[in-house]
Design a binder for these strands. Structure first.
Length: 448
RNA sequence: GACCCUAUCGUCUAGCGGUUAGGACACUGCCCUUUCACGGCAGCGGCUCGGGUUCGAUUCCCGAUAGGGUCGCCA
């Protein structure tokens, strides 16, 4: 039987990072088994539904590269879709639910109660076979012991999640339900529903949750909980995806950075971890840096310009070649594009903003004659390429009887305002002689 | 309150009865170097506790504790 999995988010206006990982695991399993990855939108809660909210999910998945084989093409619930088991929006599947409710009603498996319709739940414990957790025997809670039946259709006629979710999985032929562990306890209800329809329940695989660094649940207000945080702060999708793979799953051979094709090959349900994982932004940043080092120069420039623009740094005022060269000196240096405005801002500003502490240390009278000498050397330079600049600095240092670093530090501070940054020789060569001399002069003035 | 899941360095993890408990991020030191980053080397740091089972438990069982989840006319 061909594997059919699904990611069934509800359009809440953002894509939770945990949801993104659930989608990823489903996608991986589909690709690993040659199965089908279905995207279904659970928009039963009309109150907080909008096409924009659906688009957020669609865009997020596309950004990650998690293409679905069946599902909506746009956020329009009435729009077209791909796949022959649609509609893929629950809001368009009302008749199905209605028919199923009636079937239950007519067979006495459900009954009306205060305007709502309740499902007659069995009173015994239910065994939940789970591919990740193992067999789980779900006993009734004290409340359920009093009344195990649950509402499947509200008094306003709206069917509830537990019901529509099962009906859709059933009708869409879903073979494996891979979802967050927060659904584990309720799976008993789902299994009972499948049984009521005389259908064998799908295989279940409940994956652990992603928690905050302090162990609390990641909620919308936590920074980093939304995928948008990564799309907007210049992360590379492949890095985010790679990091997500490593939360709750392991290739078991000490690999960290791996291509998706490799993960697809290795990924399987039984080896998914059973305990929750805390989200470690530092490690994601590291991985992102690894990917940023490998992406093409063009892509780096593209993302870099975007990140700078977002920070209010308009690169359009500068020649294309200048921007290109400037960004090239940053590649392999920054871990995330969020660092770029600070790292490379000096390229795109007239005034240099000095790091106060460094200025105190480097802009001292003792350095004045040295920097003055360096300025002179630069001024006399015919060719202003990086090699010439470096040679001039080295020659000056030698003449002065000091190590290169003695000149490098104040020069860097003068030209960039920072104590670290791109290769000094290259950056000086890029901003050009005029600006360099100007900045050295400004620094000289501050040395007393 | 009841039910369910979980428990290896700070974090992500390898381990599946006998290991000097391995790797990665972070952190510290050194080397390389025009700064930083990268890279290289070294270091710091862990099996929640208590009972069993066993010749022997991080590993198996039970309990406790802790964390997470669920018990809705939310999804």
């Amino acid at each position: 039987m061909k594997v059919r999995v699904r990611f069934a988010p509800s359009p809440t206006g953002y894509l939770h990072i945990g949801g993104a990982r659930t989608a990823l695991f489903n996608w991986l399993y589909a690709r690993h088994t040659g199965g089908t990855f279905v995207l279904r939108i659970e928009d039963t809660d009309a109150a907080r539904n909008s096409q924009e909210a659906v688009d957020v999910i669609l865009q997020g998945l596309r950004w990650l590269g998690l293409e679905w084989d069946e599902g909506p093409i746009s956020g329009d619930a009435t729009g077209s879709s791909k796949g022959d088991r649609g509609p893929y929006f629950q809001s368009q599947r009302r008749e199905n639910y209605q028919r199923r409710v009636e079937a239950l009603l007519s067979r006495g498996l459900a009954y009306e109660h205060e305007g709502a319709i309740k499902f007659k739940m069995q009173r015994e414990a239910i065994l939940i076979p789970d591919l990740v957790v193992g067999d789980v025997k779900r006993e009734l809670t004290d409340r359920e012991a009093v009344d195990p039946d649950f509402v499947i259709v509200r008094s306003d006629g709206q069917p509830v999640f537990h019901f529509v979710n099962v009906i859709d999985d059933l009708e869409m032929g879903i073979t494996h339900v891979i979802r967050g562990e927060d659904h584990l306890s309720n799976t008993a209800k789902h299994i009972a529903l499948f049984n009521a329809f005389g259908v064998k329940p799908p295989h279940y695989a409940h994956i652990p949750l992603i928690l905050n660094q302090d162990g609390s649940k990641m909620s919308k207000r936590d920074t980093g909980a939304s995928l948008a945080h990564y799309t907007e702060n210049g992360y590379a999708p492949e890095a985010v995806l790679n990091y997500l793979c490593l939360l709750g799953w392991s290739p078991k051979n000490n690999r960290e950075k791996m291509a998706m094709s490799e993960v697809v090959e290795l990924f399987d349900l039984p080896q998914i971890l059973r305990h929750n994982a805390k989200f470690d932004l530092e490690k994601l940043n590291w991985l992102n840096g690894e990917y940023l080092r490998d992406i093409t120069d063009d892509r780096f420039r593209e993302l870099g310009v975007h990140a700078l623009a977002k920070a209010g740094v308009d690169t359009n005022k500068y020649p294309v070649d200048y921007v290109k060269s400037a960004l090239d000196t940053c590649k392999g240096k920054v871990k995330t594009f969020g660092e770029l405005p600070t790292y490379a801002g000096f390229y795109f500003r007239d005034e240099v903003v000095y790091d106060a502490e460094a200025a105190k240390k480097d802009f001292v009278p003792e350095n004045k004659p040295r920097v003055a000498k360096l300025r002179e050397a630069f001024a006399n330079l015919g060719s202003f390429d990086a090699d010439s600049v470096g040679a001039a600095l080295a020659a000056t240092a030698k003449e002065l009887g000091v190590k290169n670093g003695v000149l490098v530090h104040p020069a860097r501070l003068a030209c960039t305002g920072n104590i670290s940054g791109p290769s000094l020789y290259h950056l000086i060569s890029i901003i050009g002689k005029e600006k360099t001399l100007h900045r050295l002069d400004a620094a000289l003035q501050r040395m007393g």
